[in-house]
Nucleic acid binder design. Sequence first.
RNA 1: GGCCCUAUCGUCUAAUGGUUAGGACAGCGCUCUUUCAAGGCGUAAAUCCGGGUUCGAUUCCCGGUGGGGCCGCCA
Length: 458
Amino acid sequence: MNKPVRVRIAPSPTGFMHIGTARTALFNFIFAKQHGGTFLLRIENTDKERSKKEFEDDIIQGLAWLGLDHSEFHRQSEYLPTHAKYLESLLADGKAFWCTHTTEELEAEGEHQREAKEPPRHICEHRDTDKTSGIVRLRNDERASIVIHDMIRGDIIYDPQLFGDISLAKNLAEPLYNFVVTVDDHEMNISHVIRGEDHITNTPKQILIGRALGFTEPEWAHLPLLLAKDRTKLSKRNGAVSVGEYQKNGYIREAIINFIAFLGWHPKDEVGEVLDLETIIKVFDITRAQRGGAVVDTEKLDWLNREHIKRLAPEEKINRAEPFINPATKEKLGSRVAQYILAVLPRVTKLTEIDAMINDLLEIPPYDAELLLWKGKLDRAKVKETLSAILSILKNPDTAEQDFKPLIEKEGNGAVLWPLRTALSGRAISPGPYELLSAFGLDVAERRIQNAISKLDA
RNA sequence: GGCCCUAUCGUCUAAUGGUUAGGACAGCGCUCUUUCAAGGCGUAAAUCCGGGUUCGAUUCCCGGUGGGGCCGCCA
């Protein structure tokens, strides 16, 4: 009987929610869903200096916004007594010891090893002294190779002596990363550790610590890293990295999820590439994850954003778009906010574009009567006649498409729709006439058409 | 420097010991059309290099090169 699947995302609150963290969270979340397992969030805040509540909040909010809900929440700092307990037992068993070498001594040792082209490590001669202060290290006697059975990469082999005596804690109350992670993963019954490739070298250390503690080893999966356009590590300097930034820039969560799922993974079957989370969960297979780093290409994100915006239900479109409209714009729109959003949204890539687009519709620019003549194909008298006919037919913007049918059949598409659209927008390029009609409503539409007619008189 | 990971169009990727190496985004062209966008159709574009194994390697092995990661009393 396999143990229940329990996976975690374990970010340290030392920066805003990173897009790479989001992807790791997503893969864990999907894996849990596929196996009826549990996805938990653990804030790794053992570094007191760098951990900030602000970042913790941002991570929690970011995950929630993406819809990656966790069913358990832990804060590493709350398990200090447990960490101390395991530390003491290791010390009592002689599997760990106190090392009192100074930072300077360790640096000198490292320097010497580098010059001698030896592997950098600290094998401590304090192992068998009975010191009771300094830092706690693991007595690393392991000689046999450590093999990581990685779900994505197969076996990865390490010589354990390369690591020396691994540091476990600054003192009983200040445990260090590799030790804390090992203890917490065990205490929280983590079955699968799915994390970034940057942790591969930590894995053999954690295996060593886990063995000393008598823990059973979880399954491992190391995901490829996310890269910037120049194939270097994704950082603030070479692109947007925080989820909050993407949100602020007008991307919707469905697009982000779809996008990051496809960074390092692709479905096997022909299911298309515009996928919702539910579908991704159905077709996802972690063993098919890519092994090389993936470049974050926002052009594809843009396309996915457009596609997912199109697929949103009308009420959802309005809900998502509304926060991106300035209060001043909203005031001008009055009760027609929804209509304007719907008119403009189909041609939007990012939600941040809608405010300017709406404002373009609000103000009709001064334009020349020539604009109404459809590239000079129609004469003024004819256009005037058409616009008058339109005016008399126009009673309800919502049924306009139906109502104009007879007129269009008689005059042709361009002869009716071009003058209508330009009269409504005052622009050569704009949304379509029916979209404009439903955005404006009858009063504004009639006024603008009337205005166009008088332009033709002049 | 030590150790580890990795390598298919510009980008994300599919495939396989034998294929015209497939798709998507971006690009380009055509088309549709009331404008723009969207849509439809089409086009260009890749197996890092060198050895080996094999009747045959993009695929398997070795070496190189490139890229990435880690080497902390950070996580």
